[in-house]
Design a protein around this nucleic acid. Structure first.
Length: 751
DNA sequence: GATTAGGCTTAG
């Protein structure tokens, strides 16, 4: 029996089913023709046991406001198979449901969860009715609206549950409550040692009690969205506990939180991930009362953060800024290049990283560089920084300005920071709320920041125009071969010096191919917009151009290759061994990593030169690549070993990856010839493996236009660097595929 | 399926 929607007037307890309060449920009670009704305060994941066998656990809290909230009975509900699947699709946490046709069993978890001593089992003929708050807007497609059983019944829209809030001075131990409070201390969510993220905050209200709260949630979006002290939080279903002699709050089943700006007079805009934040007029009143009380107590800081122009040496401060670019420095440190439109009066530390590891522009105009602060973020924050994108607006908490730092890490390890320079560090750890968060564009502080930045950009544009004009004038006035009066007059053009007559695009297209042309055109578009996306793989043998595969694709090829558990015998020239890698869950069981080394190299004590690796993930391969000169991933197939699909790199060398051409390679597993003093390199390995090595090249596609026609042009040449394990995200394939098409046509016309 | 943290500066 599927999950049925329950909408319209009436309620199931008026039908042939009579409602039984959750408190009365027991194995002795007659539950035939009984219905229970309540709110889903917890919805567990849908677990697939095997083919078409599913289980889902939920907790339903009695839908009866006559109980004090901390005594309202809740019961575990176990749903099986089709019903579990339908429930998973159609019901959300917070929905009100009714259930019939259930059986009652003893709850095996009563000692731990302190919920109802019995649980409900729903399968087969059992039925769940869902009440929808906004039936037209959010009806899930899986929900079947009417059925023979439902059509006879008329249901009543229940009243929205009315929440009561306990003042922080009235908290009693071991109760589940709803509270409001003004934030006086907070930490952004950080990864706990368990499975969840943890938020720590301290709140207060008119009763002048400071109450510590700890929130554990797996998902970041379920955590309170606190931007600064003075923000107001409303929390539903937190439980009170005694710790160190005082009462504190921890979230419990059905927890939800809404945060509001604490500024008197600001809009009462809820910050929440909940689709139905359930905001009543009374909530607005409460927020406004707390705001004016907090203002009178001086709880809202005068400024949310300090601009770069006011940064003082040795001080810790909060910074609101925009991320312009970022780059990993080493495994524990990431560089964030940020600005807030103001200029720090101290000269700032310059951190040098390779341009190709920089995400975002690697250079800015001279004027803008003066406003950019380099921030080194460490440890847990470097990990968080991975998910940031250039353009994001950030608030960085407890940032430290360090004067005259002597050393900076990574590539610049030997680079000494000059005296009197100011370095910005976000140290590891969360002490004093240290951390960062992305602010939404709608936030008033971001709006203010954008105004300052836009003011700078406008001035910069004007200055660039002036610079360009004068540069062009200089070029135009410098006589090339034959100075002409006309060239000197025309200051807005660059001229080339060769003597091929310009022609129109329409004419050019009529001409035979293979000639050199000279055109005067406008650039109407180009791609890619980021240099790293211009990096492609190119086979010099067959001229195939292809995109660097996405890390996700490569990772899936590795995981696919590690699944095969066929028996195999490694080539006779190898020395082999294996390692058991413990799996971290049922879904990822133990794996075996097989390592094959060349016996010859082992004999010559050069075992770190080359390793054939089988059963590893992409991540493990990258990690091992730090300790081996060459790593070749392999898989078992047909009783032997073979290379992975050539979409994946066939060779890892340190952070560099090498790819083979799918068309031109004839992969085989042979021992590379490294006799005597021969040096092993990518070419030796590729040759032994029958792989046609692909080169890395830069390719840009330009869309040219003049009055007569348009034309695609390719700009390409050898890339001066090799492919490293930075993610080639967002590279659009169109440039390489249209390049391939062009080459194919060109070959056709040359025949 | 319980556990996580329980503010209070890194030491680059």
């Amino acid at each position: 029996m599927p999950v049925l929607e329950w909408a319209g007037p009436g309620s199931p307890d008026q039908a042939h089913l009579s409602r039984i309060p959750i408190a009365f449920i027991s194995t002795g009670a007659n539950c035939a023709n009984k219905i229970i009704k309540g709110e889903v305060v917890h919805k567990g994941p849908l677990v697939n046991l095997n083919a078409n066998k599913f289980i889902l656990k939920a907790v339903i809290q009695d839908y009866d406001s006559s109980y004090p909230l901390c005594q309202t009975p809740s019961i575990n509900v176990v749903l099986l198979d089709a019903l579990a699947k339908d429930f998973n699709q159609a019901v959300n946490q917070g929905d009100v449901v009714a259930a019939s046709g259930f059986t009652v069993g003893k709850s095996p978890t009563v000692q731990k969860d302190k919920l109802h001593p019995f649980n409900l089992l729903l399968s087969g003929d059992a039925c769940i009715y869902v009440f929808r708050q906004t039936p037209s807007a959010s009806r899930p497609s899986a929900v079947i609206k009417e059925s023979s059983r439902l059509s006879k019944q008329v249901f009543k829209r229940p009243k929205t549950p009315k929440y009561t809030y306990v003042k922080l001075g009235d908290l009693k131990p071991k109760c589940v409550v709803n509270v409001y409070g003004v934030v006086v201390f907070f930490k952004q969510p950080f990864k706990s040692r368990g499975t969840d993220f943890c938020s720590t905050l301290k709140i207060t209200d008119q009763s002048n009690q400071n109450i510590s709260c700890t929130i554990f949630c797996e998902k970041l979006e379920d955590h309170p969205k606190i931007f600064q002290n003075g923000d107001i939080v409303r929390m539903h279903r937190v439980k009170t506990q005694f710790y160190n002699g005082s009462i504190m709050l921890v979230n419990t089943h059905g927890f939800s939180v809404v945060t509001f700006d604490g500024t008197v007079g600001a809009d009462v805009e809820p910050r929440t991930s909940s689709r139905f934040p359930n905001l009543e007029q009374e909530d607005r009143r409460t927020v406004e009362q707390l705001r004016s009380w907090a203002a009178s107590e001086g709880l809202l800081p005068a400024v949310p953060s300090i601009p770069l122009s006011d940064a003082q040496p040795k001080a810790y401060f909060n910074l609101t800024c925009q991320l312009l670019a970022k780059a990993p420095v080493d495994s524990t440190c990431t560089l964030l290049r940020v600005w807030d439109g103001t200029r720090c009066p101290w000269s700032l530390l310059n951190v040098i990283v390779e341009p190709d590891v920089m995400e975002g522009p690697s250079m800015f105009s001279k004027e803008r560089e003066k406003l950019i602060a380099n921030i080194l973020v460490y440890d847990n924050h470097a990990e968080f920084a991975r998910q940031l994108k250039p353009g994001d607006f950030l608030r960085i908490y407890n940032l430290r300005a360090i004067p005259g730092s002597k050393k900076v890490p990574g590539l610049a390890g030997s680079q000494s920071a000059e005296e009197d320079h100011l370095a910005f560090h976000l140290h590891g750890g969360t002490a004093y709320g240290r951390g960062m968060r992305v602010l939404p564009e709608s936030s008033p502080d971001v709006q203010q920041l954008k105004r300052v930045i836009e003011g700078f950009l406008e001035r910069e544009d004007e200055e660039i125009d002036e610079v360009n004009d004068s540069e062009l004038l200089e070029i135009a006035c410098t006589p090339p071969e034959s100075p002409s009066v006309e060239a000197a007059k025309c200051s807005a053009e660059r001229r080339c010096s060769h003597d091929v007559q310009p022609e129109t695009l329409a004419d050019l297209k009529q001409r035979d191919r293979g000639r050199v042309h000279h055109v005067r055109v406008q650039l109407s578009s180009y791609e890619p917009h980021r240099l790293h996306q211009a990096l492609k793989l190119y086979c010099s043998k067959c001229t195939l151009m292809q995109e660097i595969p996405d890390d996700e694709v490569v990772a899936s090829l590795f995981s696919e290759a590690s699944k095969g558990s066929e028996s195999f015998s490694p080539p006779a020239w190898t020395a082999s061994g294996s390692v058991e890698v413990p799996g971290d869950s049922l879904a990822s069981p133990n794996r075996t990593l097989h390592v094959h080394l060349s016996s010859q190299l082992v004999y010559e004590r050069k075992s770190r030169e080359l390793m054939f690796l089988m059963g590893s993930t992409l991540e493990e391969t990258c990690r091992l690549a730090a300790g081996y000169r060459h790593i070749v991933p392999v898989r078992s197939r047909g009783g032997g070993l073979e290379l992975l699909d050539l979409t994946a790199p066939f060779l890892f060398r340190g952070r560099k990856r090498y790819y083979g051409c799918k068309r031109c390679s004839q992969p085989t597993l042979k021992e590379p010839n490294v006799e005597g003093d021969a040096v092993m390199d990518k070419k030796v390995v590729a040759e032994a493996l029958g792989v046609q090595l692909m080169q890395s090249v830069l390719l840009m596609k330009l869309e040219l236009r003049d009055a007569t026609d348009t034309l695609e042009a390719f700009l390409w040449r050898d890339a001066n660097h090799e492919i490293k394990d930075f993610p080639p995200r967002g590279g659009r394939p169109s440039a390489s595929s249209s390049f391939n098409k062009w080459r194919a046509e060109r070959r056709e016309t040359q025949r």
